[in-house]
Design a binder for these strands. Structure first.
Lengths: 233, 233
DNA sequence: CCATTATTCTAGTAATCGTTAGAATGCGGG
DNA sequence: CCCGCATTCTAACGATTACTAGAATAATGG
């Protein structure tokens, strides 16, 4: 009588197995920033291309990601926005449940980085009022795939050169892929060294989106081709 | 630069591994009904006590469940209500993502079993108006640990005897542990055979709670002791 | 105390998973 | 049509996991 459900739980476990490996969660986190090729993913996750391909196969089997072919590249993307939300839910649960996690995050995450709903709306307001400048320090492609409205795209490697176009009298808020992405941290360190009032926020685009706030996206939604043909609209 | 995060993802994967096995998800689902002993869990999940104990150890390692000792029994419970919500999120994601899942659920889940927020509020209203009777057909202990307010506890094995106290002119709605629990299905089958207008709803108590609706609980929150000492308050 | 009951621990085996190296595929550009 | 590139497939390995049987622990009730 209670046996009939095993196959159902087996299906649920398929998804569970998808998020049962650190590398796979990392890949999902990266894909939440927008679609990417296998090589990019492998590079950003710090694993071999072959290994990345194997993990992506598992994720595809669990229907968490999908891929399409563009020229000789396989471009992967999350199968659904709900997948990103699920990863956020996993992250939140882990932060609640695991003391070890709290230690880790305490290292990274300083004081006011963690936003409440009110904080987020206030940030938008202050941005509109011209009090703060919000910098998206991820790669350009990631910015284009989705960013906080009003944020300016300044990929970390270019930050130094761009500094002189950033007024010193405003507070600078940097964000990147999410709480575990070090980019915004580095940006803040650099900015402070140069005399800015700067802070990072914990949010990535998914967190922002999950909080019910709008996300803006640039014309080119899909990853840039390496070929000549320009992708209009 | 991107390496520093691996330990964080490792921690997330600990939770992921918790839900990477069908048996473990089943155990979590059962624990969402209230705390239970190892033997009960093993019996309800259809696995050996030793195996259940091993799986529970994994879940404890992932901080998803906790246990306490009562007399010679180890009594397990979810570490947090957020764990139940996470399992619901997993279930929902699976139903969205996995076609195979949809087939399974199509077998079980007929037409109107799936509730929207409006449905749930309307059900409460109709219950208050005396139009429908809602039956909780789970075990008594599960009912006591939390149930839909206004629902009547009629454990499935007792349904037959209790039938004459149930008026035939009202619609009967049965629910049990959740979408994959067959109890309410069987209850509906029996009721219809006896000439009732009966239907099941997909919701378990967690779904109900996750939908933001109140859950009622009886005096005895913790599992009944086998000893004499009665648990007041 | 002793026997009973519920559970956990320890090994051991079979199965699965993660990773890598090497071969195979499939596409695009000369 | 062939070469080069990005990716996947195959095979192999060591590491981990699932499950079980048997011993050990721990608490109860005589």
């Amino acid at each position: 009588m209670t046996d009939a459900h095993l196959p159902v739980y087996e299906q649920l476990a398929r998804i569970g197995k998808g998020v049962a490996s650190a590398h796979r969660i990392h890949l999902l986190d990266l894909l939440a920033q927008g679609e990417k090729t296998v090589e990019t993913l492998a590079g950003e996750a710090g694993i071999s291309v072959k290994n990345a391909s194997a993990h992506l196969k598992v994720l595809r089997g669990a229907r968490l990601v999908e891929s399409r072919k563009d020229a000789q590249f396989s471009i992967y993307r999350l199968a659904d926005a709900a997948v990103a939300s699920f990863v956020v839910a996993l992250r939140n649960l882990a932060e609640n449940r695991l003391a070890e996690m709290r230690e880790f995050t305490a290292e990274f995450l300083a004081n006011r980085e963690r936003l409440t709903a009110v904080d987020r709306r206030r940030l938008l307001q202050r941005m509109r009022d011209g009090e703060v400048i919000v910098l998206d320090v991820r790669a350009t492609a990631e910015y284009e795939a989705g960013h906080i409205p009003g944020a300016r795209s300044v990929p970390l490697p270019q930050l130094e050169q761009v500094l002189r176009t950033i007024p010193k009298d405003k507070e600078i808020i940097a964000y990147c892929r999410g709480p575990y992405c070090g980019l915004s941290e580095q940006a803040v360190a650099l900015l402070r060294r140069r005399g800015y009032r700067a802070a990072r926020i914990h949010d990535g685009v998914i967190d922002w989106h999950d909080a019910g706030l709008p996300v803006e996206r640039s014309r080119r939604t899909r990853t840039e081709r390496h070929t000549k043909r320009s992708v209009a609209s």
